[in-house]
Design a protein around this nucleic acid. Sequence first.
RNA 1: GUGAUUGUAGCUCAGUUGGUUAGAGCGCCGGAUUGUGAUUCCGGAGGUCGCCGGUUCGAGACCGGUCUUUCACCCCA
Length: 459
Amino acid sequence: MKPSIPKGTRDFLPSEVRRRDYIFSVIKKHFRRFGYQPIETPVMENLATLTGKYGEEGDKLLFKVLNNGNFLGKADADALAAKDSDKVLASISKRGLRYDLTVPFARYVVMHQNDLAFPFKRYAIMPVWRADRPQKGRYQEFYQCDADVVGSDSLFYEAELTQLLDGVFHELGLKAVIRLNNRKILAGLAEIAGMADNMMDMTIAIDKLDKIGWDKVAEDLTSRGANAGALQVIKQFLDAKSLDSVAPLLADSEIGKEGIAELQEVFDLIKQSSPLPRGEGFGEGVYNRLEFDVTLARGLNYYTGAIWEVAVDTDAPGQENIKMGSIAGGGRYADLTSIFGMKDMPGVGVSFGAERIYDVLEELDAFPADASEDLQYLIVCLDKETLNHGFGLVSRLRARGVHADLYPKAGKLQKMLKYADQRNAPKVVIIGSREAESGEYSVKTMGTGEQETLREEKL
RNA sequence: GUGAUUGUAGCUCAGUUGGUUAGAGCGCCGGAUUGUGAUUCCGGAGGUCGCCGGUUCGAGACCGGUCUUUCACCCCA
């Protein structure tokens, strides 16, 4: 049979895995730096845990796991006869693959509340699955890197998560633009525009402003039930670029004013407490561009306060041609655990899209050189008699912590050097009868082709 | 889920209005060079033309279906 893998999934070569590990390790380092602790949850959750958490669209994108055994025998016969997939589902599938890391985390917090100290800060770097139609930068299996804190509504966390986002992209050498908004501001807008009942529709429409322009957004809004008065209010709102100019427009909305105050506090905190060296960054207290963006809506239903979205800064030199959606995002959710029976447990978190970050770094050729190199020495032997000597040498080098490998057959040097080249070995130790006798090894540096004679202690 | 798009050697791709034995570059293997890779020269191997069906005397090419790729929606990392 012809080998293949499912749509939207990928295999990774060793060099790719090393570079992915590099991204994960940078992100993990910053998670830990900010006091987040690792947890793990199963790749499968009970389907009931997942359904209804991501909206109607999200439910369609859940991967369902078929029950074991004679699942059709136990299926809802009426629904089956009627070919009603949605209805028959409950009787043939009780598990599903996780769609993100946040909902399983909420479930985890509720189940382990007695073992956790609140505020509880956790991170997780794990794959998630979505039955979406694949595109570039969009896969059915991909990793998310999440940091969340639950059990506090302190705005310090909004500030520190912004610093965390900033720190990761700074270390990765990627210029990013971090956009920040607050759902309460959007709620306030919906209120004064008379669209409080369909705020979701409104935010989805205005989220597309920079992509399709105001005229199309207005069209979209109208089809979603906005009248002329509402359009005017929204237009005026979207034209206000700064927090200061938005604030007066929300003077009549309690929730809107709250959102403004919260965001202002977050920006102030970040600026006042900035650890940046003098002259770094854009004057907002972080390395990357940090902006208030009133058009930022983000899809996930459960966000209630701050929302982030991070994109590649295409104004930065060398990054002009990068076309990629958001590479990180997040937000505050007032109430994610109550559906699992735990009240008053606000949370806030961010998520890094490692796959997209990989694609961007690849396109920018921004991976550090040593991210694709692992082996330090390859040992090659010219004849059978010296092979055992070579195995002794490689064993002693490994015992010292040196990354070393042995070519397992005596063969033509030509072939063995070619193998060393493919293995990306920076140095090759050549053992022939001369070297085995004297203990003076010929060591070739592959990059330059130069060769020197060294004793074992010098390796 | 809707509408497009792609698939030929390990990789990137040619392949004329349907016509003999499907090609190139790179890579791979062997040799020039039995102690020197990445550069040079010579030789060689490698194909179910994504898959299934149809039209035809004849299909890599045309038609239908299906899978996959990419893209726009929807939504999202």
